[in-house]
Amino acid sequence: MKRDKHLPLTETVYYILLALLEPAHGYVIMQKVEDLSDGEVRMAAGTLYGAIENLLKLKFIQSVQSEDSRRKVYIITNEGKRILRLDFERINHLIKITENNW
């Protein structure tokens, strides 16, 4: 089986997609990523903005209607969910074989 060319996802992209299973704007994404990673991954504004732009281009996320006109709100797309799931399975496989071979 040929692997999807977007895999593996970078750690930050993985966290962003995971955070966007629920709609969120930029700053909320930053906070969620920090929480989800137990404070390990702290994204700066410029880095996050670039990542969002890139994920929009790849159609892994999309912007949704927002009540706050100054902050755009994003959510993961079906394609984004598919890729996140694929990477999850890849990591799961790594975990299994590592445990079996340790």
Binding site: H25, A45, L48, Y49, R71
Partner: peptide
Amino acid sequence: FEDYCTLFEDS
């Protein structure tokens, strides 16, 4: 542009 500036200001 506004969304971009707001993200930076939020952080």
